[in-house]
Amino acid sequence: MSTVSGKEAVSTEKATRAVPDHDPARGRDQAMTAGQAAGGRPIPPPRAVSAPRAWLRLLGSEVGLTFRRPRNLAMLGVLTVIPVLIGIALRMFAGTGGDGTGAPMIFERITGNGLFLTFAALSLLVQLMLPVCVAVVAGDSIAGEAGIGTLRYLLAAPAGRTRLLAVKYACVVVFCLAAVTAVALSALLVGLLLFPAGPITLLSGGTIPFLDGVLRIGVVVLYVTAGMAALGAVALALSTLTEVSVGAIASTVVIVIAAQVLRAVPQLSVLQPYLLTEWWSGFDGVLRDPVAIGDMGQGLLVFAAYAAVFCSIAWARFTGKDITA
């Protein structure tokens, strides 16, 4: 019975279409008919797609989305400009500003060797600028999709909750790497343009060749990226708790600032080893000879612990959540 009425319905529809009309929307009708005709165009039978390839495809889509977003590009742009400003300021006031008291050791050395600008820029920006940028991207990752409703379509696609979360976090890590690299490259270029280059005199007194110095910058970039990725896990966890991305972003920034405040109180020194912020700038070790890996190793452990704990929280929350947005 249902098939009969179905067929009749189709034929009625055809009959309606066959009637010539001067409806302005007729073009759209034709478009649909064209679609039908095109339906006969052969699409190769779907080939089984391996899970890792499908995962990489989703990651590619995610990364593409992240780096096409004007907001994220603007943040990367700002991160690139700041080392330029530091470099120009140091160059202009190189001889004059030296009251010699407050300036950190690394800053004094920039005028002597451009490579130090990279270390200086990273140790400055890692305090707040980089964390804020990471908080924006990671805090938005789930909450932003929930906010505009695309999360339900991704999950119905079906992206899979664990899979989507893993891709989101991988993308956050890629963004952390991009942000830190942007700072480092910009500082490296500006440093080489404005200041002398050559063998580097380390904090411990020895001298290493220039290329060795660049290599050590690479190590610092990876270390700072790890630190930012740990913060990214915190922001991702917060992002699964809300449908308002600003909420997740703001909470992450508040956590960073609170940690910085706690760090500054000497009476709370017992807390310091457990604070994420305590370890972010702990990369002076690479400027010693031999490289002092002790502090950095401990920093990496703290980062790994934070990432593991907060990714687990994010996973537990996200896989059991009702998606009602």
Binding site: G35, A38, G39, P44, P46, V49, S61, A159
Partner: peptide, 28 residues
């Protein structure tokens, strides 16, 4: 559409343009 297609683990990336083109044509 490409974004949603990427989220589907069984979607064949080689045919994505054709499939998207057909779907868009179908809805005008």
């Amino acid at each position: 559409l490409r974004r949603y297609d990427a989220a589907d683990p069984s979607a064949d990336p080689r045919t994505v343009s054709t499939r998207i083109g057909l779907a868009l044509e179908r809805v005008g």
